[in-house]
């Protein structure tokens, strides 16, 4: 199990809470909330160790594409980067 945190300051805050996905094989749970301060914070707990660079690159690209401010929690059970990006986008759609 590994914990990864990615942060970026600034951005447009999300307005609502959103919850998508599940901690199931190849899947992940995303909790997205309006942030306490104007920054994006993504905290990942993943069952699979050794993929920190891939996680960082995936999350940084997400924040590049969507410059938001939000408190995001990810609970992952071996999802691919494609699935991670898709769930984040689904959560964002509900939270904006």
């Amino acid at each position: 199990m590994q914990r990864i945190v990615v942060e970026r300051s600034g951005g447009v805050p999300v307005t609502k809470r959103a919850h998508v996905g599940a901690v199931a094989s190849g899947n992940l749970e995303v909790l997205c909330e309006p942030p306490a301060e104007a920054r994006a914070t993504i905290v990942v707990s993943t069952s699979v160790d050794g993929f920190e660079p891939v996680w960082r690159a995936t999350l940084e690209r997400f924040l590049e594409r969507y410059p938001i401010a939000a408190a995001i929690e990810i609970n992952d059970f071996g999802a691919t980067p494609a699935m991670v990006s898709l769930r984040l986008e689904q959560a964002l759609e509900l939270a904006r």
């Binding site: 190849g26 993929f51 891939v54 691919t80």
Partner: peptide, 8 residues
């Protein structure tokens, strides 16, 4: 193709 396979 997906950019990564299921095994990462």
């Amino acid at each position: 193709v997906e950019t990564f396979r299921a095994s990462g």
